[in-house]
Computed example of a mutant assay.
Amino acid sequence: MTEAKPAPSRTRHALDRLARVITETLAPAVLLSVTILAVAGHVMATEGWAALAWGAVLTLFGAVIPTIYIVRGVRRGRWSNHHVTRRESRTRPLIVAALSILTVLILASVGDAPRLLVAMTVTGLVNLLVLLAITRWACHKISLHSSVAAGSLAVLATTYGPTLWFAAPLMVAVAWSRVHLREHTFLQVLTGATTGLLAGAVLFPSLL
C-alpha cells in the first residue's frame, strides 16, 4: 500500500496564487501597453495630444493585435494557453508580433511620430527579433515576461529619470513568478532580463 502524498500547505497555495497574479497583471502585453502610454504621456508636454494618439496606435499594433492573434489561436486549439508555454509553439506568435511592430514602425516613420516613440518601437522590434532568434535557433525557452519587464523598466528610467530604477523589485517579482510556476528556469528568466535590459538601457538611449 503506497503512502499518500501530503497536501500542499497553505503557504504554498498562497505563493501559487501570488505568482499567478504577478504573472497576469505584469504580463508582457500589459507592461508594454503601460510603458508605451507612459512614454507618450511624457512626450505630450512638447508634442501635444498627437503624442497620445501615436501611443494608442503603437499600443494597438505592439500589444493588442499580437494578443488577439494568440487568444484566437488558443480558442482554435493551436496553443494550450495565452502564454504559449511550449517553446516550439512560440515562433509563429513572435513572427506575427514582429510583423505587427514593423508595420507600425513604418507608419510612425512616414507619419512623423515623436522621436521618443519611434526609438521605443525600434527598441522593441530589435529585442523581439533577438527573442525570436534565441527561441527558434538556440532552442532556449527564453522568458518574454522577464525580457519585457526589464526592458520596460529601463525605458521608463531613461525617459523619466533614474529614480524609477527603484521599481526593480517588480522586475524581480516577475522573474520569481515564472520560476515559481515552473514555466521557466532561473537561467531562462535571467537571459530574458538581460536582453530586455540591454535593449532598454543601451539601445534605446542610443536612438534618442
Rank of each mutant, 00 (worst) to 15 (best):
S9T: 15
I70T: 09
V110W: 13
F166M: 13
A133W: 15
C139N: 14
K141H: 10
R75E: 07
T195E: 02
Q188W: 09
T135D: 00
P6G: 09
H184S: 13
K5W: 09
I70Y: 02
I36N: 03
H184I: 14
H13R: 13
V71K: 10
R10K: 11
L107I: 12
S89F: 02
A108I: 04
A4V: 13
P93W: 09
A19R: 07
V21H: 05
T191K: 03
T191P: 01
H184Q: 11
A98G: 09
T11V: 11
A199N: 03
L132P: 02
W49K: 04
V43P: 00
L129H: 01
G73R: 04
T91W: 01
A173P: 02
V126C: 05
A201S: 12
R12C: 04
Y69F: 15
A108C: 09
N127F: 07
G77I: 07
R78A: 12
A119F: 07
L203C: 02
L198W: 11
I36A: 03
E183C: 12
E88N: 11
C139Y: 06
L105G: 07
H82W: 10
P66S: 03
A201F: 11
R90W: 10
G192M: 04
G48P: 08
L156Y: 10
G62K: 00
P93F: 04
L99E: 03
V30I: 15
V202D: 03
M1T: 07
H83Q: 11
I70Q: 00
V148S: 04
G62Q: 06
R115K: 10
A27V: 00
L105C: 04
R10N: 11
A27H: 14
T103P: 07
S100A: 14
D112L: 14
W176E: 02
H83S: 06
T91D: 05
A53N: 03
R72P: 00
A199D: 01
T163N: 03
A4E: 14
A40G: 05
R72Y: 10
V96F: 14
R86F: 10
A50S: 14
G124M: 06
S206D: 00
T121V: 12
A98M: 06
L170F: 15
R178T: 02
A38F: 14
A7L: 13
T35E: 08
A119L: 08
F204Q: 02
R17D: 12
A98D: 06
T2F: 12
I22K: 06
L18T: 12
L107F: 13
A150Y: 10
D112E: 15
